[in-house]
Design a protein around this nucleic acid. Structure first.
Lengths: 230, 230
DNA sequence: TACATTTGCGTATAATTAACGCAAACCGCA
DNA sequence: TGCGGTTTGCGTTAATTATACGCAAATGTA
């Protein structure tokens, strides 16, 4: 009656990094397949005995060698039947955050090249990866405003101005520096450290740390993180 | 080197309905399969030439015969490799809203029985459907507070007290009736109609309509819907 | 007609957000 | 050593928004 199901299932990952006051995405140039010579999101077919999230971790490790600080499922792309020209492939997309400020990436076994691309300088990608990426950016923007994931893009210890800059850059909004600082500090999950930043210019600044434990305590008490922008 | 991929892909749908001041979910009792005799979410395998969302629509039509007012992808469940005991099956879950107040459901070709279950009286379901449903409820609750999807659970014309009751019931929170009304009306996307409700008791109440066009206009102007509860 | 009930509108106060002032602490340089 | 340029860190005030109620109007019912 019905034909045997003949659909492949893949995972793809959007890896976001923040450095030099800009948002970047990790892309690879594939060695194999029809999408050769196109840049693409890291990813590949899921193995029979591995979970979806394990598949993402494995592919990322094979292709890029990065240390994730956050990963979450984004969306499953399967409405365009021809998104892969060879076969029907449904892709479960994930997005992940890394501290890119101090990270050595390198092409590994499966990928020809691996490279950070600035978010506003993305080339035409393989398959429907531009669409996936677009959705990932939207989600990142939304999530930044109601969950403290910005810290996953920064080093363990960071300047307030970096945090502020991260928000302004990614959300493409202006915000008053002083009100932003006041608000975030009032939440009480940031810790001052004894360290100061290497001076660039102007008054030396304290380095702060995100206290996840404290944050979880607050959540248990009904706290709700939020950063509003005009 | 690598074994051929042997993973099936299914869709499942959570259909929410609101009636008698309570939140309900549509469940079916399957005719076929190992999950016989268990209640389950409507769903089934995706066909080779159909998109994911088409698959959901088709399965819902085959199994329940309901008129959706809203549908959105929820999450893809594929981390538990053994979520279906027969084969490895990855399920892309959707959730949908219907106006259940005036709806005749009936078991169709594929399902033995179809029935509304109150959200706090859900039995043990087939596969991992209890987990899927839990995530669906969480998402519904969250979405209710930042997008005007509550109207998709109500009739075209509704009482303010129904809207208020819907929010209080689903979010399990108290709210001041007068402040709620003031806030929602201030948004300006509700229209008074000339109709009044059939009287139950007390002062007769106006019926309101959600003006989606107006809402979209507001969104374009940067409006952001939000219902906060203490 | 008195009463219970639900609606619809209003007002006072508390809390939060937005706008901005300004001194402190550094650098570099004359 | 002193002065301009820069960034940090802490305040203050006005505007806006949320919260907590009060209360009369409009019904059905006893």
């Amino acid at each position: 009656m019905e034909k045997l199901q003949n659909i492949r299932i893949a995972v793809d990952a959007i890896v976001f990094g923040y450095k030099n006051n800009g948002l970047y995405v990790l892309l690879i140039e594939q060695k194999f397949g029809s999408a050769e010579k196109y840049w693409a999101l890291p990813g590949g077919l899921v193995q029979n005995d591995e979970s979806l999230s394990d598949a993402v971790i494995r592919e990322l490790h094979e292709e890029t060698n990065v240390q994730l600080t956050f990963m979450e499922q984004l969306y499953t792309f399967g409405d365009d039947i021809y998104r892969d020209s060879r076969n029907r492939v449904i892709s479960v997309a994930y997005y992940a955050l890394v501290d890119a400020s101090n990270l050595e990436i390198k092409a590994d076994t499966d990928a020809e090249r691996v490279q950070w691309f600035k978010i506003d300088e993305i080339p035409s990608l393989a398959f429907d990866h531009n669409i996936i990426l677009k959705k990932g950016i939207e989600r990142l923007k939304a999530k930044l405003t109601y969950e403290p994931i910005g810290f996953d893009l920064l080093p363990e210890e960071f300047l307030f101005s970096d945090l502020e800059n991260l928000y302004c850059t990614i959300l493409e909004k202006e915000i008053d520096r002083r009100n932003f600082r006041k608000k975030i500090l009032s939440y009480g999950f940031l810790e001052e450290t004894d360290n100061f930043s290497p001076i660039r210019s102007g008054r030396p600044a304290k380095l702060f740390k995100f206290n996840k434990l404290k944050y979880n305590e607050l959540i248990d008490k009904g706290f709700h993180f939020e950063v509003k922008f005009a």
